[in-house]
């Protein structure tokens, strides 16, 4: 039987929560592996690649050969956050798996601080230079696209819906990462107050035993969620049919053909004129060029 929580008795004999059970971590590892293998097999059997070929559409006029998808600023954020996240996951779970990482706590909190810095940078960048609300809003088109996506998943006859710059599945993933990140960050900062860092005077009694247990448990659940989220993220980034996404995050652009195949020009209009304006003014024009329009 899988245990969800670790509990103990505090010095006053009260039964208190102290964190998530490590069984949960192993469950997440197994689930992630099952999902990846299951998805790969299912995808192959369903023949989705045929849909992708069907989805190729004529290229709208005025679309440049290279369509800018991620500005340099956005890519720097993405890869810094990835490094921080991977470091956090490795230092959190690898010692539990039995492999010793000297000073893992120090590495962990430093990576956590880097993560917080990247998230702050991302929020400022997204609000100031990107179309923040088109990623964050939940308009009718969002749900329409979601419904079409679900139809596509359950029926081999339903074509894959084309999205804006940020398709439905990407946005859902982004929202899941927001929830898990915020949970990990808020609880992580409280946990940092219990250890030696330059930021706080160590105080293990800042919150009660019971509250600390809840904080540790939320942090653990967020960590376990990240095992699933990051495993699936890396899997999709490496899949041959999705590798253009990985390359767009490396190079910043997608080709005209990829744009025509995977995006709806109405939801993500791109023209030569806008592209040249972007290249003239750099990242400041990011929103002007590539802002998703569907829920605007």
């Amino acid at each position: 039987m899988i245990e969800l929580w670790r509990r103990t008795q505090n010095p006053w004999g009260q039964d208190i929560l102290i964190g998530v059970s490590w069984d949960l971590m192993w469950t997440a590892v197994v689930l992630a592996a099952l999902f990846l293998v299951g998805h790969a097999v299912w995808y192959r059997m369903r023949g989705f690649s045929a849909h992708a070929a069907e989805a190729a559409a004529p290229v709208p006029a005025g679309v440049p050969a290279r369509v800018q998808r991620h500005s340099l600023a956005a890519r720097i954020f993405h890869w810094s956050m990835s490094a921080a996240m991977l470091t956090l996951l490795i230092t959190a779970f690898v010692p539990v798996m039995g492999l010793e990482i000297p000073a893992w706590v120090t590495i962990h909190w430093i990576a956590g601080v880097v993560l917080i810095a990247t998230v702050i940078y991302h929020i400022i960048h997204a609000i100031g230079w990107q179309d923040f609300w088109s990623m964050m809003s939940f308009g009718p088109n969002f749900f329409r696209e979601g419904a079409a996506q679900m139809k596509h998943l359950v029926s081999s006859k339903a074509p894959e819906p084309k999205g804006g710059k940020y398709p439905f599945d990407h946005r859902m993933y982004h929202h899941a990462v927001i929830v898990a990140s915020l949970a990990a960050i808020v609880t992580g900062v409280i946990m940092m107050m219990r250890i030696d860092t330059p930021f706080f005077t160590r105080d293990p009694y800042l919150v009660s035993d019971e509250t600390a247990g809840i904080v540790f448990a939320i942090h653990g659940v967020a960590g376990v969620l990240f095992i699933l989220l990051i495993a699936s993220h890396i899997y999709f980034a490496l899949r041959p049919d999705k590798r253009w996404l990985l390359w767009s995050m490396v190079r910043g652009w997608v080709s005209r053909d990829v744009y025509a195949t995977h995006f709806d020009p109405k939801k993500w209009p791109v023209t030569e004129e806008e592209a040249s304006r972007k290249s003239a003014s750099g990242a400041l024009a990011d929103a002007a060029v590539s802002a998703p329009k569907e829920d605007a």
């Binding site: 670790r6 103990t8 102290i18 964190g19 219990r194 293990p204 009694y205 035993d209 600390a212 540790f216």
Partner: peptide, 10 residues
């Protein structure tokens, strides 16, 4: 196995 160090409290 817990999550506090009682000896380093203020």
């Amino acid at each position: 196995g817990g999550n506090v160090c009682y000896a380093s409290a203020p």
